[in-house]
């Protein structure tokens, strides 16, 4: 069993995935990334967190990436895991998630990249509920945006400043 993030990193290193961050050179849109607990702390540890950062920085530009603190294996859970989203304890889930929300806000990033589905749903909900105003995107969206192959119908989670980029 492997994570696709390992492959993304490998393909970029091998030159098969020719991503670059030119699209963001002038836009200077800032991104942060959520380390999924299941993938990082509970499974593959800091090496996968490093791969994740390598991919993200290759795609959005090193100068446009802002890490949360703490991060990698020491990162806080967003509150989307363990069945929380389906448990019906929504008030508790949002109180739990306030820690993550504050952490994201402190980065000042306009986008939070979430490689995990539960993180994606939870952090979207947190941004909306606490009126954070930041967007929450899958990693594949940004990889394709950077490659110039992201279709019009594949931009559901992008904000207005990225809706047209590379079309």
């Amino acid at each position: 069993m492997r994570s696709i993030i390992q492959y993304y990193a490998q393909w970029i290193r091998e030159g098969k995935l020719k991503v670059n961050s030119d699209w963001n050179k002038d836009l200077k849109i800032k991104f942060t990334v959520q380390d999924p607990c299941q993938l990082v702390r509970k499974s593959l540890g800091d090496p996968i967190a490093e791969d994740l950062r390598f991919v993200v920085k290759s795609v959005v530009g090193e100068e446009n990436f802002i890490d949360m603190v703490p991060n990698k294996s020491n990162n806080y859970c967003c509150g989307g895991g363990g069945g929380y989203l389906q448990s019906g304890f929504n008030d508790a889930r949002r109180k739990y998630g306030k820690v993550k929300f504050d952490q994201i806000i402190r980065t000042g990033a306009q986008y939070c990249i979430t490689p995990c589905h539960n993180c994606h749903s939870q952090i979207m909900d947190l941004s909306k509920y606490y009126e954070g105003g930041f967007y929450v995107v899958h990693l594949w969206t940004l990889i394709c945006l950077s490659l110039g192959i992201l279709g019009e119908e594949e931009r559901e989670y992008l904000g207005p400043e990225l809706k047209e980029v590379g079309l």
Binding site: R41, N74, S87
Partner: peptide, 16 residues
């Protein structure tokens, strides 16, 4: 206690 459904078992505690 319903708290066990409010902990995500994220393992940050055991890590620390």
């Amino acid at each position: 206690t319903p708290w066990v459904w409010m902990c995500t078992m994220c393992q940050r505690c055991i890590y620390a």
